[in-house]
C-alpha cells in the first residue's frame, strides 16, 4: 500500500433519511494516521456523516477507504476493513460486563493470542476499566462508559477510528482525560475522524478540521487556521 492513497476519501457525498438529504455534496479527505475533526452545530449532520461511513445510512457519492469503495457495503462488513465507530451517546451493551463489552469489539478476530494482546493494550490505556471488568457496563459512570465504547472500538485495531461526540455530557475533568487518550491513540498511528460540538476540544487535539453547516462543508483548514478564523471564533468558540 502506498502512502499517497488517502486513508479516507469522501467525494460528493449525499445521504439522508427517508428520501430527505441531510448531507449535500460533502467532500473530505484524510491521510493514514491523521487526526481530523469535523465541527458543526446541532443537526448539522455530523453523526449522519459518520453513520454513512459506517454503512448505517445509505448514500450516493463515493467513500473510499484505502482506495476501496464503501458506498453500498452493508454495515457489518465495514469493521472488518479496519474502521471502528464509537457511536454518539452511551452506546455500550448495558447488561453485559465491561469485559464482555470490550471483547465483543473484536468478536470477528479469530486469533486468541491477538485478542489477549489487544485486550491488554486497551486495559493499559484505561486502567480504570481493569478494576471493573466484571461490572455491568450500564452501571458505570458516563466517562467510564465512554471508555468502554472506545476500548471496544480499539479491540478491532482499526486504522480509522470514528468518534462521535465522545465528550458529550461529561465532566470537564473526564474530558481532559479523554483528550489525553485521543492523543495517545493518535500517536500509536491510528487515523481518527472526530466529530464534536465541543469545538475547543476538537481543535486542541486534531491537526486539521472541517466545518459542517446544514450538511455542507463550508470551511476547512489546519486546527491553527480554524482557531484563528473569525467566523469559527464567533460561531463555534464563543469568542
Amino acid at each position: 500500500m502506498t502512502s499517497d492513497v488517502p486513508l479516507l476519501s469522501i467525494a460528493d457525498l449525499h445521504a439522508g433519511y427517508d428520501g430527505v438529504d441531510v448531507l449535500h455534496a460533502v467532500s473530505l479527505s484524510m491521510a493514514a494516521g491523521e487526526f481530523v475533526c469535523v465541527i458543526g452545530a446541532n443537526t448539522a449532520g455530523k453523526s449522519t456523516l459518520l453513520r454513512t461511513v459506517s454503512g448505517l445510512v445509505s448514500a450516493r457519492g463515493s467513500i473510499r477507504f484505502e482506495g476501496q469503495e464503501l458506498v453500498g457495503r452493508p454495515a457489518h462488513r465495514i469493521p472488518g476493513l479496519g474502521i471502528a465507530h464509537v457511536p454518539e451517546g452511551r452506546h455500550v451493551f448495558p447488561d453485559m460486563s465491561v469485559d464482555e463489552n470490550v471483547m465483543l469489539g473484536a468478536f470477528s478476530v479469530r486469533d486468541a493470542a491477538d485478542l489477549g494482546r489487544r485486550r491488554e493494550h486497551v486495559l493499559e490505556m484505561f486502567p480504570r476499566l481493569r478494576e471493573r471488568l466484571g461490572q455491568a457496563a450500564g452501571t458505570l459512570s458516563g466517562g467510564e462508559q465512554q471508555m468502554v465504547a472506545i476500548g471496544r472500538a480499539l479491540m478491532l485495531a482499526p486504522r480509522l477510528l470514528l468518534l462521535d461526540e465522545p465528550s458529550h455530557g461529561l465532566a470537564p475533568k473526564v474530558v481532559d482525560e479523554l483528550h489525553d487518550t485521543f492523543l495517545a491513540i493518535s500517536r500509536s498511528g491510528t487515523g481518527i475522524l472526530l466529530v464534536e460540538q465541543n469545538t475547543a476540544l476538537a481543535l486542541s487535539v486534531a491537526s486539521r478540521g472541517y466545518v459542517l453547516e446544514s450538511g455542507r462543508i463550508v470551511l476547512e483548514g489546519t486546527s491553527a487556521e480554524l482557531s484563528g478564523n473569525d467566523a469559527v471564533r464567533s460561531a463555534y468558540l464563543g469568542l
Binding site: 459506517s54 448505517l56 465495514i78 457511536p87 448495558p94 447488561d95
Partner: peptide
C-alpha cells in the same frame, strides 16, 4: 444479546 441491547452498536462492531 448485542442486537437486543443496542442494534446500531452491534452493527458497527461487525454483527
Amino acid at each position: 444479546r448485542a442486537i437486543k441491547e443496542n442494534a446500531d452498536a452491534a452493527e458497527v462492531i461487525g454483527v
